[in-house]
């Protein structure tokens, strides 16, 4: 897993690459919590290069979404690979996240 964070005044763009699984979900959670603690009000998670996620990773996505909703912020995802989208559909996550096809659309909100 590799995570890159790009901050602007309007939004924080997080790009996650590779696998988010039981072995590294804790690390991913720490990175996301750091961004939340800085008070980000719009976070876009670019999943273009995310090619695997298990329930440990989904858990982190849900934690972030809950916290962002509580702080009246916006958390959106973009560019989910078909395999990842399927997992989101199965677990009901497709209806609790705002998912955009492209990064540009997600940034505009």
């Amino acid at each position: 897993m590799n995570v890159e964070v790009f901050k602007t005044e309007e939004y924080v763009l997080v790009s996650v690459e590779g696998r988010v699984d039981t072995t590294n979900a804790g690390e991913f959670e720490k990175t996301m919590m750091g961004i939340l603690e800085e008070g980000a009000l719009r976070i876009v998670l670019d999943c273009t290069a995310l090619n695997y996620i298990s329930s440990s990773g989904l858990r982190v996505f849900l934690v972030v979404q809950k916290k962002m909703m509580a702080s009246k912020g916006h958390f959106s995802l973009c560019s989910l690979q078909p395999g990842i989208k399927e997992i989101f559909d199965i677990s009901g996550f497709s209806s609790i996240f705002t998912i955009f096809p492209h990064k540009e659309a997600a940034i505009k909100g």
Binding site: L58, L62, M69
Partner: peptide
């Protein structure tokens, strides 16, 4: 099985692993 129709606020954190196995 977890209730996947719940809203974000009501969704439980975790408990998805076995459900995913059953679905897949």
């Amino acid at each position: 099985d977890p209730d996947i129709s719940l809203s974000t606020e009501d969704r439980q954190i975790g408990g998805l692993g076995i459900f995913l196995i059953k679905k897949i």
